[in-house]
């Protein structure tokens, strides 16, 4: 299982604990994790990426293993520690006040 930490607003929206776990078939990539997350929590569709273009929303960031992986290709494999479940994928709202 892949561990995913959600930002506060999306936890409230999806009715989840801060961290959720999703099952990903095949290579564990950013795209597949988001697909699995939206499958389990349909209310998150459109909140992380555009539903038509599938592009990451501008104020959404992805961190893993203390690195910003927001700008890596969506089909690139995630770090081994995330794939093994040792580390979570952090989904973060950009720090922009408000």
């Amino acid at each position: 299982m892949i561990r995913v930490v959600l930002p506060q607003h999306l936890r409230t929206l999806a009715g989840t604990a801060p961290e959720v776990q999703v099952a990903v078939d095949g290579p564990v990539t950013q795209r597949r994790v988001l697909d699995a997350l939206e499958e389990d929590y349909p209310v998150l569709r459109g909140t992380l990426r555009d539903q038509t273009t599938q592009r990451r929303r501008p104020f959404i960031r992805f961190f893993a293993c203390e690195e910003d992986i927001s700008h890596r290709p969506p089909d690139e494999l995630l770090p081994t520690s995330v794939v093994s479940g040792r580390e979570p994928l952090f989904i973060v709202g950009a720090m922009a006040g408000g």
């Binding site: 607003h9 459109g46 909140t47 992380l48 929303r57 501008p58 104020f59 959404i60 709202g93 922009a96």
Partner: peptide, 8 residues
């Protein structure tokens, strides 16, 4: 809506 998470 928010600028972060879009429209609901």
């Amino acid at each position: 809506s928010t600028g972060w998470f879009g429209q609901l």
